[in-house]
C-alpha cells in the first residue's frame, strides 16, 4: 500500500463519517428536543428503538440495512429501478451504516442538552409572545448548543471507527468502500502487519484529536 492509497483511505473515512453525521444532524437534534420536551404515549418505545443500534451487534445492524437496501428487496429495488440509486457496496452505503450506528449517541446527547435548558426560560419566551419555532431557535437551541456540538463530535468519532455494519452493507472494496477500520482488518488478515500498524496509528491520531477537541470543548463550555 503506497502513500496515495493510505491518503485515499483517510479521505474516504472522513467522507463517510462527515456525510453520516450530516445526514443524522437534523433528525437527531430534532428527536433529542422532542424526547427532552414532550411526554407522549409510546415515548419509552421510541427511546428503545433509538437506542437499539447502540446495543445490537453492528453486523446485525448491517444485515438489517442490507435487507433494506438490497436490490432483491422492495425498497432497494425501488431505489435502483425508479431512482437509479445503487446503494449497496458503495461509499454511500458506508455512510448510511455510520449514520445508523452514530444516531443513538447524537440523540442521547441532544436529549440531555435540551433537558438541561430550564423549561422556565421557554415559558417566559412564550409569555413574551414567542411561537414554538422562534422559541427553539432563540432560546432552546442556543442554550443547548454546546451539548449538541458535543453530541455531533461524539457521533463523528463513532462513525470514524465503524466496522461491522459497514462490512455487511458496503463490503471491503479497496479504492471504493475501504475505510481505516476496514483497511486495518484487510491488512491483518493478509499478513501486512506494517500497513496495519500505520493505519492503526493514523486511526489513533484522528480519534484522539476528535475526542480531545470534543472533551476540551465541553470543559470550556462548563467553565463559561
Amino acid at each position: 500500500m503506497n502513500y496515495m492509497e493510505i491518503l485515499d483511505i483517510v479521505i474516504r473515512t472522513f467522507q463517510v463519517a462527515i456525510t453520516g453525521v450530516l445526514v443524522i444532524a437534523g433528525p437527531g437534534i430534532f428527536l433529542g428536543y422532542l424526547l427532552a420536551r414532550w411526554n407522549f404515549r409510546g415515548k419509552s418505545l421510541v427511546e428503545t428503538l433509538v437506542a437499539l443500534p447502540m446495543v445490537l451487534p453492528p453486523v446485525a445492524v448491517g444485515l438489517l440495512l442490507l435487507f433494506l437496501f438490497s436490490r432483491n428487496r422492495p425498497f432497494g429495488d425501488f431505489l435502483t429501478e425508479k431512482l437509479g440509486w445503487q446503494i449497496v457496496y458503495t461509499w454511500v452505503a458506508a455512510a448510511i451504516a455510520a449514520a445508523v450506528v452514530s444516531f443513538p449517541l447524537l440523540v442521547r446527547a441532544c436529549q440531555q442538552a435540551f433537558s438541561d435548558v430550564p423549561q422556565r426560560l421557554e415559558q417566559v419566551a412564550e409569555s413574551l409572545g414567542s411561537g414554538r419555532v422562534r422559541r427553539f431557535f432563540t432560546v432552546s437551541f442556543p442554550l443547548a448548543r454546546q451539548g449538541v456540538i458535543y453530541g455531533l463530535l461524539l457521533a463523528f468519532c463513532r462513525a470514524l471507527g465503524e466496522f461491522g455494519a459497514t462490512t455487511m452493507i458496503a463490503g471491503n472494496i479497496p479504492g471504493k468502500t475501504q475505510t481505516l477500520a476496514l483497511g486495518i482488518y484487510s491488512s491483518v488478515i493478509n499478513n501486512r502487519d506494517r500497513e496495519a500498524f500505520v493505519l492503526m496509528i493514523i486511526s489513533v491520531v484522528i480519534a484522539f484529536a476528535a475526542m480531545y477537541f470534543s472533551e476540551g470543548y465541553v470543559k470550556k463550555a462548563v467553565k463559561k
Partner: peptide, 28 residues
C-alpha cells in the same frame, strides 16, 4: 400564552443567559 399579552416576572427573574440585557429587554 403567547397571545395573552401578559407581562410575567417570575420569582427567579429567568433572564435569558445568552442574551445581553438589551436583547433580553427587547425580546418580547
Amino acid at each position: 400564552a403567547r397571545e395573552r399579552h401578559i407581562g410575567w416576572v417570575p420569582q427567579d427573574a429567568s433572564l435569558f443567559p445568552h442574551l445581553s440585557v438589551r436583547d433580553n429587554i427587547c425580546y418580547g
